[in-house]
Computed example of a mutant assay.
Amino acid sequence: MSGRLPTHVLAGALLRRAAAAGGFGMLLARGERDAGALVLVCRETGRTVAVRELATGPDGKRILRRAGPESPDDESVTVWIEQRRRHDPDLWIVELDIADAERFAAETIGLN
Rank of each mutant, 00 (worst) to 15 (best):
S76I: 01
R47N: 05
A11I: 02
G46T: 12
A20K: 03
G68M: 02
V49H: 01
R33C: 03
L28R: 15
R84Y: 09
T48L: 04
E107W: 05
C42G: 04
I93E: 02
T56W: 04
M1E: 13
A18H: 00
R30L: 05
V39C: 13
A67W: 09
A99N: 04
L27T: 04
S2P: 14
E75S: 12
E107L: 14
Q83H: 09
L111I: 07
W80G: 14
D59W: 05
L38G: 01
R17V: 12
D34K: 11
G110Y: 10
V39D: 10
D97C: 09
G110V: 08
S76R: 15
I63V: 15
R65A: 15
E107Y: 01
L10R: 15
V41Q: 01
I81R: 15
G22R: 11
P72Q: 10
D73I: 00
L91S: 00
P89H: 12
F104V: 03
W92T: 02
I63G: 04
R4Q: 14
F104Y: 07
L91M: 10
A35Q: 12
G110Q: 08
T45E: 10
R16G: 05
G68V: 04
D74G: 11
D88L: 02
G23P: 05
L14K: 09
A106Q: 07
E82I: 10
G57W: 01
L10Y: 13
F24P: 00
T7N: 01
T45L: 02
L27E: 13
A13G: 14
L5H: 08
R103C: 02
G25P: 09
R43I: 00
G57N: 10
V9P: 00
P89Q: 04
A50H: 09
G110R: 06
L14D: 05
R66S: 14
G57E: 08
V41F: 00
K61M: 06
V51S: 00
L91W: 03
E107F: 04
R84C: 11
R62K: 12
G110S: 09
L14I: 14
S76Y: 02
E44R: 13
R4L: 15
